[in-house]
Design a protein around this nucleic acid. Sequence first.
DNA 1: GGCATCTACCGCAAAGCTGCCACATTAAGA
DNA 2: TCTTAATGTGGCAGCTTTGCGGTAGATGCC
Lengths: 243, 243
Amino acid sequence: MPQIAGRLLLVDDEPQLIRVLVPALSAAGFVVETATTAASALAMLAADGYNALLVDLGLPDMDGKEIIAKLREWSDIAIVVLSARDREDEKVAALDLGADDFVNKPFSIGELLARLRASLRGREFRFASQQDFRAGDLRVNFASRQVFIMGEEIHLTPHEFDLVRCLARNAGAIATHKQLMLAVWGPDANADAQFVRVLVSQVRQKIEENPSAPRLILTELGVGYRLASDGVAEVASPAAEAC
Amino acid sequence: MPQIAGRLLLVDDEPQLIRVLVPALSAAGFVVETATTAASALAMLAADGYNALLVDLGLPDMDGKEIIAKLREWSDIAIVVLSARDREDEKVAALDLGADDFVNKPFSIGELLARLRASLRGREFRFASQQDFRAGDLRVNFASRQVFIMGEEIHLTPHEFDLVRCLARNAGAIATHKQLMLAVWGPDANADAQFVRVLVSQVRQKIEENPSAPRLILTELGVGYRLASDGVAEVASPAAEAC
DNA sequence: GGCATCTACCGCAAAGCTGCCACATTAAGA
DNA sequence: TCTTAATGTGGCAGCTTTGCGGTAGATGCC
């Protein structure tokens, strides 16, 4: 499995379990990070970017259920509970707090992975369709690759859209020339910074009210471009480095 | 729990289990119907309206896994498997076919209900009619594999329907070439992107008013195709996962 | 066997996108 | 104000992608 299946946080205080689980999860395509206390786990989760949480209920500093409750206040990622205690009230409580699944120790790796896949399934869509970026009169839908100005659809070519997507993902911040070239032409194309200029110009003709006095795509001389993020705080988009 | 928690189909051939489960599920707020064979279960599911399926793997006429696979062709409802066989490969297979959870017999009612709640959670937002898709003059019924234009039935070949289904499931969003090839020819066929073009062309001849200026199946150059979701592109689109 | 239907595949024309150049314009610093 | 570097933009040849007519073989049905 060459592709990345997701970024995953494993919270458990038993070193030997971590030693077994991390390689197995990595082999299954997950990027795994670990925490051994509830406090550090919550700090890592707050920093964002995870697709799933694997959490033990018996942690030294806090009950694992508290992590679930706290996390569910702001996040929707998949949560699978691992536990040595096979008590019904524990299971019911964890599930009703927002866990997606509950696995008793000892468990088989294969089953854990299957349950993880099942919990993750269908979530991509939730994020994808809601990633609808707005700034002023501009609206970008990443899932449908559609761009609207004042509600009217604007047709962009594939490269043009890739550029806008990268700018939108970094809205408010600067997307450097290099970043944009990577986003549009990929890592192994020998793109010239000149092409970015041409592309930006073309996009401006399409989305700016007055292309010679751009208000959306702003030039950062010598560095790159910046998409004005006026007003709307949107889903403070992470994944900036990704595009 | 006074309110209706959902409509639920219980498929099992052990009368005593049904006698125990039905009152418990009803007490928890579910409207429960039962089936004892896979064939009747599928017929009932096709007739629509369920929010969840509880299914035993050991049925007289067909393996429960087949119900899961068939149901997942058109429906997105919660599926929880009950099984007396505690074998890892069974669990993995059932989960990967699309089940949301797997409970071993004997189980506690409390745990089953909690798992059911967890599986149902977060699905509310998914589009209401899971077996009937509409966009403009087009109507697609996933269960009966029928397609209508302005109320009039249009005959599609099996491959053509598979294509339309995948497009409809992603309505508003893009179905990539790869996604479509998978949906129509399956994972181990060596399909060529060229075949997708041909198929799209054929379908357009059948469902578009003016096939040379398509309004339903739109081309996303270099990426794939998109079924226009009429009106708001917002959260209109159903789960992408299945097709 | 005969007929209808479906599927895989070829090949070519049209559409539309990309790379790239030449040159105009603008911003920054001395 | 002048110089220099960086940026903006029209244009177009060539290429990639797409649309689609057509055909042979496979499949299923009377």
